[in-house]
Design a protein around this nucleic acid. Structure first.
Length: 273
DNA sequence: AGCTGTACCTGCAGGC
DNA sequence: TGCCTGCAGGTACAGC
C-alpha cells in the first residue's frame, strides 16, 4: 500500500492522536511480523514507554519512545496502522495491538503480512534492514538536482533506479509510473542516456507529484487508509497507473502495461520516449 | 553491477 | 456456484 505520501499521511494523522501517550501493553497476535526482538522481549520492552515523536524515513515509520527506544514499522503492501479512542473489535488481519494508558488503541492490520515491526534502542536502529541504506529524502534539501543528476549516471533502467530505495527514499510502483508519465520518459530508458533537460524535468516532476500526493493525503487503490481510517484522494489524479487500455489523457493512445523489475508498469507508448 | 525470477501472503476480479 | 489464473502499494535473495 504505502509509498512516501501514504506513510507521511499516516504519520501526521497518528501524531495528532498518540503523541505523548504511554503504552500500557502490546498484544502480538501474529509473531511473523515482529522481526526483533522475540515476542516476550518485545512485549516487555514496549510496556510503559511513552511516544515522544513520530518520524518517517522513506517508507519506514519510526515511533520515538522514551528511554531511547524506537518502534520501527514498515507497512509492506497492505499494512495499516489504525487508531481508535477505545478498545476496538478486530479481525483475522489484525496482528498487533498497542493499548494506551487512556484505553485508546493502535491496531496493526495487514492482509498480506509483508509488513514488519522492530523495537530497537537508538544504537540498534542501523540494524533494521534497509533503514540505514536509504537514499536521500526527495522533499528535503539533501535531494538536490546535483545529487540526482549524478545518481542518474549509473547504468540502470530508469524505473529500476527510481524504485531502488538506495538512490532516493520513498518512491514505489504507483508514483514512479505517474512521475515517468508526467516527465514523458519511457520506463525502460537507461538512466545514463537521459539528457540534461530530461534529468531536470524528472527531478522537478518527482517533487511535484509527491507534493500533490501528500496534499491529497495519499492514493487509495485497494485498502490504504490513514490512522483515522480515512482514504486518500490521489487515485483521482492518476494518469496511467492501472489504466491499461484506456486512452492517454494527452493523446488518446491506449495506455500499455509491461513488466519491469517484476512490477506491473503502465505508460503511454506515444507520450513517453 | 544490474536485472530477472521467485518467494513471502491473502484476497479479489474475470473467464469459463 | 466453483475452479482457475492473474494481479496487487513491498523487499530480499539466488543466479545469470
Amino acid at each position: 500500500m504505502p509509498e512516501l505520501p501514504e506513510v507521511e499521511t499516516i504519520k501526521e494523522s497518528l501524531k495528532a492522536k498518540i503523541l505523548f501517550k504511554k503504552v500500557k501493553e502490546a498484544d502480538i497476535l501474529c509473531e511473523k511480523l515482529i522481526k526483533y526482538p522475540e515476542k516476550p522481549d518485545f512485549i516487555k520492552n514496549i510496556k510503559d514507554k511513552k511516544i515522544k515523536n513520530l518520524q518517517r524515513k522513506g517508507k519506514f515509520l519510526i515511533l520515538k519512545l522514551s528511554h531511547n527506544y524506537n518502534l520501527v514499522v514498515h507497512l509492506g503492501m497492505t499494512g495499516q496502522l489504525l487508531y481508535f479512542n477505545s478498545h476496538q473489535s478486530f479481525d483475522k488481519h489484525t496482528h498487533v495491538l498497542f493499548n494506551f494508558e487512556d484505553s485508546s488503541q493502535l491496531q496493526y492490520n495487514d492482509v498480506r503480512k509483508f509488513g514488519a515491526l522492530w523495537l530497537v534502542s537508538d544504537g540498534w536502529l542501523r540494524f533494521v534492514p534497509g533503514l540505514s541504506e536509504l537514499g536521500p529524502e526527495p522533499l528535503k534539501k539533501e535531494f538536490s538536482l546535483e545529487y540526482f543528476q549524478k545518481a542518474l549516471n549509473k547504468k540502470s533502467i530508469i524505473k529500476y533506479l527510481l524504485l531502488n530505495q538506495k538512490n532516493l527514499a520513498g518512491l514505489g510502483n504507483i508514483y514512479v509510473d505517474e512521475i515517468l508519465f508526467r516527465a514523458e520518459i519511457h520506463p525502460r530508458r537507461p538512466s545514463s542516456e537521459l539528457s540534461d533537460l530530461e534529468r531536470e524535468k524528472l527531478y522537478y516532476t518527482i517533487l511535484e507529484v509527491l507534493g500533490e500526493a501528500i496534499k491529497a493525503r495519499g492514493t487509495s487503490v485497494v485498502n490504504y487508509m490513514d490512522g483515522n481510517s480515512q482514504k486518500g484522494e490521489f487515485q483521482r489524479h492518476l494518469k496511467v497507473y492501472k489504466r491499461l487500455g484506456n486512452p492517454c489523457y494527452n493523446c488518446e493512445t491506449p495506455v500499455e502495461r509491461i513488466v519491469l523489475a517484476g512490477r506491473g508498469t503502465y505508460f503511454c507508448p506515444k507520450c513517453q520516449h
